[in-house]
Design a protein around this nucleic acid. Structure first.
Length: 302
DNA sequence: ATGATTTCTTCCGAAGGCCA
DNA sequence: TGGCCTTCGGAAGAAATCAT
């Protein structure tokens, strides 16, 4: 599972000279509708390459189903989150890169025409490329070549990765009619509406132990609690309480692994005053009690 | 004896329909 | 698009039971 903190712009692409990273996400023990990609966003462009299992990714609140071989394109700034569609293992690769990856080509006319508009968001690709292997074999091949180069790290692999991605952009923009985002009032107004939610979600992620009611949260985004619940579910795919509880349980799991605190102490730490309820909640999200989880986490670390 | 877990109960809030 | 209302499921707390 990928956590949002790893995807904040400052921590994700540490090499400023080569601002790209590739994440291999693999979840073995999966239940239906399990969270396989934590809700997050970043200023970077991202490709999600599905390899195994089936998942639903909510990208700016629109659901996209992905099966092996399918590719999703996450535009910069888009909120995205992923859930498994059945109880089988899920495997996918995320390729995340900053627009500054192509800095050396910024004055090149090809870059100006075929890449810059997409990276700057004035034009956008469709999120789902479909089964890239059959409908866009060339794009699929370029993406895989970039992935292979990135993994193998052969001499001059950086240049190879940049060139494969550049060709990929050119190929997609040639073969797929782009939709212009500039002046698209509906998308723009929705994007504006998302901003307070992004800030709220970031606050929740940074402070998993802070108790916050639906009413307090709705006040933060200046909506009635009724409407807040509707919009929050639309954006995240989860109810507000469900989302907050998942954050708290993830924090509890970290404390079980990295600290010697008792279950009761951890329950208090994450803002769950009642350890009875904490145990019940933990079992609901993680499929086992906190004590068993600690044993399992410690065993797997050896 | 203490802490962890399960069971049971109460009441809050999520969700969807309706309306402005 | 956003607010109000109603219904019912589930979140949260209390008490009992189990494990170490």
């Amino acid at each position: 599972m990928t956590y949002s903190d790893e995807l904040w712009e400052d921590t994700l692409l540490s090499d400023k000279n080569f601002p790209i990273n590739m994440f291999h996400n693999h979840t073995d023990q999966v239940e239906k509708e399990q969270n396989i990609l934590f809700l997050h966003w970043h200023a970077h462009f991202e490709f999600i390459v599905m390899q195994e299992g089936r998942a639903s990714f909510l990208i700016d609140s629109i659901p996209y189903e992905a099966s092996p071989g399918e590719v999703l394109i996450v535009p910069s700034g888009a909120l995205h989150v992923g859930y498994s569609l059945d109880d089988k293992p899920v495997k996918y690769v995320s390729i995340v890169f900053s627009s500054s990856l192509f800095e050396d080509f910024s004055l090149d006319s090809t870059y100006q025409t075929y890449i810059k508009p997409y990276l700057e968001g004035t034009q956008s690709f469709p999120v789902k490329l479909g089964d890239a292997a059959t409908s866009h074999p060339e794009a699929f091949s370029l993406l895989h070549q970039a992935m292979e180069e990135f993994t193998s790290k052969k001499p001059a692999y950086r240049l190879a990765v940049i060139n494969h991605l550049m060709l990929l952009f050119i190929h997609i923009s040639r073969s797929i009619k782009p939709s212009s985002s500039a002046g698209h009032s509906t998308e723009q107004s929705f994007s504006r509406k998302l901003e307070p939610f992004k800030q709220l979600i970031r606050y929740l992620e940074m402070n998993p132990s802070h108790k916050i009611s639906v009413e307090q949260a709705s006040n933060k985004v200046n909506l009635s609690s009724f409407h807040f619940c509707k919009i929050f579910k639309k954006i995240t795919g989860r109810t507000f309480i469900d989302f907050v509880n998942l954050l708290r349980i993830n924090e509890a799991e970290r404390l079980l692994r990295d600290s010697s605190m008792s279950v009761t102490e951890i329950a208090e730490q994450i803002g769950c005053d009642n350890p009875n309820y904490f145990t019940k909640l933990f079992k609901k999200y993680k499929g086992m009690t906190p004590t068993l989880s600690r044993k399992s986490l410690l065993n797997s670390s050896y």
